[in-house]
C-alpha cells in the first residue's frame, strides 16, 4: 500500500503531507478545524475585553497592576522561537531527513515546555501576590479562561508532538505519518499566532490601561 511503502530521499514526494488522499483530507480538515478554533478564541477574546477590569470592589487588582512586560516578553520569545524550530522540523521532513526532524521537534517541545513553566509561574504569582484568582472577580474568570485555554492548547500540543515522536521513533517517515507530523506543526503555529494576540490584547493593551 502506498502509505506504508518505504521511501528514499529520491522517491520522497515534495509535498509528503498531501501525497495521499488521506493526507489531503487531514490537511484540509485540520485547516477547517483551525477555522473553528479561530472563532472559539475570538469569542474568548470578546468575552475578555467585555470583562476586562470588571471587579466587584476597588481593592481588586486590575490589569495595569498585574502585568509585567519582561516575563510575558520572555514567554512570547520562547513560543515564537518554538514556532521557528517547528518550521525547521517540517523543512527536514520534506527533505526526508527523519533524524533532524525529530531533533528540531524535540527543541520545539522543550521550548513549549519552558513557556508552559513560565505561565504556571505567572499564574501562581498573580494568585499569591495579588489575590487575583479564577473566582475573585469577573475579570479573573475571563483572564484565566482566555490565557488558560491557550495554555491547555499548548499542553495538548506538547503531548501530541511527543506521542508522534515516540510512536514513529523506530520506523522513520512514511506517507502515513508525514501528514500527522505536518498537521501537528500546523497546530503549533496556530497556538503561536493566538499567543501573539494574547500578548497584544491582554498584556500590552493591559499595561496601557
Amino acid at each position: 500500500m502506498a502509505a506504508e511503502q518505504k521511501y528514499t530521499e529520491a522517491t520522497w514526494p515534495s509535498s509528503p503531507e498531501r501525497a495521499t488522499l488521506e493526507g489531503k483530507n487531514k490537511f484540509l480538515g485540520f485547516w477547517l478545524f483551525l477555522g473553528g478554533e479561530t472563532v472559539l478564541f475570538a469569542s474568548l477574546f470578546a468575552t475578555y475585553l467585555a470583562l476586562k477590569d470588571k471587579v466587584p470592589s476597588a481593592d481588586h487588582a486590575l490589569a495595569k497592576d498585574l502585568f509585567e512586560i519582561p516575563l510575558t516578553f520572555m514567554a512570547t520569545m520562547l513560543l515564537l522561537t518554538s514556532s521557528l524550530t517547528s518550521v525547521y522540523a517540517m523543512y527536514h521532513m520534506k527533505n526526508f531527513d527523519f533524524k533532524r526532524m525529530q531533533a528540531w521537534l524535540l527543541v520545539t517541545v522543550l521550548l513549549g515546555a519552558a513557556f508552559l513553566g513560565l505561565e504556571i509561574y505567572e499564574f501562581n504569582h498573580y494568585v499569591h501576590e495579588f489575590k487575583h484568582t479564577f473566582t475573585s472577580s469577573a475579570f479573573g474568570s475571563a483572564f484565566y479562561t482566555l490565557v488558560g485555554f491557550h495554555g491547555a492548547h499548548v499542553a495538548v500540543g506538547l503531548g501530541w508532538i511527543l506521542t508522534l515522536m515516540i510512536r514513529n521513533a523506530k520506523r522513520g517517515l512514511t506517507l502515513y505519518n508525514a501528514p500527522k507530523f505536518y498537521v501537528a506543526s500546523l497546530y503549533w503555529h496556530f497556538i503561536d499566532v493566538v499567543w501573539v494576540f494574547i500578548f497584544t490584547v491582554v498584556y500590552l493593551m493591559g499595561m496601557v490601561g
Binding site: 470583562l51 471587579v55 479564577f134 472577580s137 469577573a138 474568570s141 479562561t145
Partner: peptide, 9 residues
C-alpha cells in the same frame, strides 16, 4: 467563576 454574576463584575 463570575462571568455572569453582576455582583462580581
Amino acid at each position: 467563576a463570575n462571568f455572569f454574576d453582576a455582583a462580581a463584575g
